[in-house]
Simulated assay, not measured.
Amino acid sequence: MALPTPAEAGGSQVKSAVRTVELLEYFAGRPGMHSLAEVQTALGYPKSSLYMLLRTLVELGWVETDATATRYGIGVRALLVGTSYIDGDEVVAAARPTLDRLADETTETIHLARLDGTDVVYLATRQSQHYLRPFTRVGRRLPAHSTSLGKALLATHSDDQVRHLLPERLEALTEHTLTDREALIEELRLIRQRGYAVDHEENTLGLRCFGIAVPYRTPARDAVSCSVPVARLTPGREQEIRDALFTARDRLALATRHL
């Protein structure tokens, strides 16, 4: 028997599903606890239906409340679903030996991330062996234009595709972030020529990152990077890291060729 269309099933069911996802994404992007008024102002839902939706999600474990039961935040079930995504992802599984080897070779922090709209989402991390090191958790989301991972992935798209994806003015995370889309596109052309991207303290002050796309599909969806505190960088060290990334890219291309 054919499934009913959204119109036949009733628009309220579809709207409820959309609101549920938007609500969970709101909490996921804003850590901490939020009042009903805060959430209602941000999402614009009727307060009564929003309250009922929140209470339902609290009962199901997707949303949690504080001791007063008046403030809300993301629940533990969201973590379980996120962990399931990572555990079941074929690229993450195939990349593990290469990420381990790259971390051992460079002794620096290594990331694997995926392009999701205008952001990159971190799928795997190997922490640096040094005392001075960056901290990035799996599941973190950052603007693609401010990271070497994101720029390496954006460079696999055409200029017109990038213009369609990104606004003319981009968010500044530090004083070094490129905030003009056309200036970013000029850098993406350079990245295509040399094969890797660099984040010059554009996401975190004092940190330089080198990123390279994993070419198992076109445009690329995933990239790997190496993050190094500027205080530890020398021209020779940069070259070592770039060479290690190119080698890792070739290994990843081989490991993901069947995906």
Rank of each mutant, 00 (worst) to 15 (best):
P215L: 08
L254T: 15
H111T: 14
G11Y: 13
R77S: 08
R101N: 05
I74F: 11
D100H: 09
L153H: 02
A94S: 14
R169M: 08
Y45M: 09
V18F: 13
E175S: 15
A95N: 03
A253Y: 07
P46F: 06
L149V: 02
I191F: 14
V162G: 00
R208K: 10
E187C: 11
L142V: 10
R194K: 14
A95I: 02
R55C: 01
F135S: 12
T109Y: 04
T125P: 04
H157A: 01
I241G: 08
A9E: 06
L102F: 04
W62N: 00
T234I: 01
V92C: 07
Y72E: 03
K151W: 07
L173Y: 15
A113I: 02
L132W: 09
T204S: 06
G29F: 11
Y72R: 03
V91W: 08
A213V: 06
D66G: 15
V120I: 15
V81D: 08
Q239E: 14
T106S: 15
L245R: 02
L259P: 04
L43M: 08
A17C: 04
S16H: 10
L207K: 12
L165D: 04
E64H: 04
A124E: 14
P167K: 05
L102W: 03
Y196A: 06
Q239G: 05
T118R: 15
A28K: 10
A94Q: 04
G44C: 11
T41E: 13
V91A: 05
C226P: 02
L190M: 09
I241Q: 05
V121A: 12
R194C: 06
D250M: 06
I86K: 11
L132F: 12
V58I: 07
A95E: 01
T107R: 15
G88P: 00
D119A: 10
K15V: 13
N203R: 05
D160G: 07
Y26W: 14
D89I: 01
R133Y: 09
L57D: 05
R55K: 13
G150H: 10
E175H: 15
S158P: 00
R242F: 09
A67T: 15
D199P: 10
A93H: 14
T179C: 11
T83A: 15
E38H: 13
E202Y: 05
T70Q: 15
Y85V: 12
T177H: 03
E186C: 10
T136I: 11
D87K: 02
T106E: 05
H200I: 06
E22N: 13
D100F: 12
A93C: 03
E38A: 09
L102R: 01
Q127S: 14
A155I: 03
G150V: 01
S225Y: 03
A28I: 00
E38L: 04
R232E: 00
L188R: 12
T218S: 10
I212S: 05
L50T: 05
E59M: 07
L173V: 03
A2S: 07
